[in-house]
Design a protein around this nucleic acid. Structure first.
Length: 192
DNA sequence: TAGGCCATCTGGTCCT
DNA sequence: AGGACCAGATGGCCTA
């Protein structure tokens, strides 16, 4: 309810995950087909998410705690709907205790658990923002930020691209320092 | 208006 | 036993 506003103000509508999922591993050939391909252009012209100021606000507000009300965001009417399942199935670990707990106590416990879960998700979002920050993607206040799924897919492609680049560099380096005379000579500066 | 994305709640399971 | 993690359900907001 109240917390919604405090979280992420921007509504990401990511680039198609498929686009982000694409190449990244056209290994065989000369690697890094990714560079031009996925990462930078993964945002097909018109849907270029970004973030920066939004990110900060999001991260800043992540710690903020809403008013901890049951059924907080206009959710299903609290215990009434779950009361049956609560009594029957019940949580595995605290089953015995829950039977003995009074309604207010149960409610208190629920609030506590909800709060923990909320915090967990906030932490997850902060981590996701951190990942967005290091992604090769257009960051800016006027651009929507990547959706979660898009962030993950882009990150995957980025890692694959970097891996390919690294392999390529290693290969080149190996050629350069190769003991093969012809290759070595070819690398020697022309001294006349 | 439909679809996408997200936050939150909730019960269950796993781990310490 | 308590907390972390997970997945399903639900409803809100936003954009095409």
């Amino acid at each position: 309810m109240d917390s919604d506003a405090s979280l992420v103000s921007s509504r990401p509508s990511s680039p198609e995950p498929d686009d982000l999922f694409l190449p990244a591993r056209s290994k065989g050939s000369s690697g890094s087909a990714f560079t031009g391909g996925t990462v930078s252009s993964s945002t097909p012209s018109d849907c270029p998410p970004e973030l920066s100021a939004e990110l900060r606000s999001a991260m800043g507000s992540a710690g903020a705690h809403p008013g901890d009300k049951l059924g907080g965001s206009g959710f299903k009417s609290s215990s009434s709907s779950t009361s049956s399942s609560t009594s029957s199935a019940a949580a595995s670990s605290t089953k015995k205790d829950k039977k003995q707990m009074t309604e207010p106590e149960l409610q208190q416990l629920r609030l506590k658990i909800n709060s923990r879960e909320r915090k967990r998700m906030h932490d997850l979002n902060i981590a996701m923002d951190g990942l967005r920050e290091v992604m090769p993607y257009a960051h800016g206040p006027s651009v929507r930020k990547l959706s979660k799924i898009a962030t993950l897919l882009l990150a995957r492609n980025y890692i694959l691209m970097l891996t390919n680049s690294l392999e390529e560099m290693k290969r080149l380096l190996h050629i350069w320092v190769s003991p093969h005379p012809l290759r070595t000579v070819a690398l020697l500066p022309v001294s006349r």
